[in-house]
Amino acid sequence: MAEHLLHIEVAYATAQRQWLLACVVPEGASVSDALRLSGLAEQVPGLDLDSSPVGIFGKRVSDPQSRKVEEGDRLEVYRPLLADPKEVRRQRAAKAKALRGA
């Protein structure tokens, strides 16, 4: 009996480049398995898929080793934040207030 295959996409982006890989993985593959099979780690030097946060269509996956992929899923590998978004907004608001008051 032939193994059933699923078609998925794997997405990753840096400031300089984006990757969107169309992949075929076996049914029952976990998110971790699918990322490994995608070959993304070989294309992006220094990318550690085991410690990178991952999501499916923008929703974070808490346990990539147990979550199974489904037909048509888009797996997204996220980069760590360089700055806290709330702090950046606070700084921008303070700067705008200072400019208005001057």
Rank of each mutant, 00 (worst) to 15 (best):
E3A: 08
E3G: 13
H4G: 00
H4C: 00
L6Q: 07
L6S: 06
I8Y: 13
I8P: 04
I8W: 13
I8D: 02
E9M: 04
E9D: 04
E9S: 08
E9C: 02
V10K: 10
V10F: 11
V10H: 09
T14Y: 10
T14G: 02
A15Q: 13
A15F: 02
Q16D: 14
Q18Y: 11
W19Q: 01
L21N: 11
C23Q: 13
P26D: 08
E27V: 06
G28N: 11
G28Y: 01
G28E: 09
A29T: 07
V31L: 05
S32V: 02
S32T: 15
D33P: 09
L35Y: 13
R36K: 12
L37M: 12
G39F: 15
L40R: 05
L40S: 11
A41P: 03
Q43H: 12
P45Q: 08
L47S: 10
L47T: 09
D48T: 07
D48N: 15
D50A: 14
S51V: 13
V54C: 09
F57H: 14
F57G: 03
F57E: 06
G58N: 08
G58W: 12
K59E: 07
K59I: 02
V61M: 03
V61A: 05
P64V: 11
Q65G: 02
K68S: 04
K68N: 00
V69N: 13
E71Q: 15
E71M: 12
G72C: 04
D73N: 10
R74S: 00
E76C: 10
V77R: 03
V77L: 04
Y78W: 09
P80R: 09
L81P: 05
L82A: 12
A83H: 14
A83D: 07
D84V: 09
K86M: 05
R89C: 01
R90S: 05
R90E: 07
A93L: 15
A94L: 15
A94C: 12
A94Y: 10
A94R: 14
K95H: 14
K95D: 15
A96F: 05
A96W: 00
A98G: 04
A98L: 13
L99Y: 03
L99S: 08
G101A: 14
A102S: 10
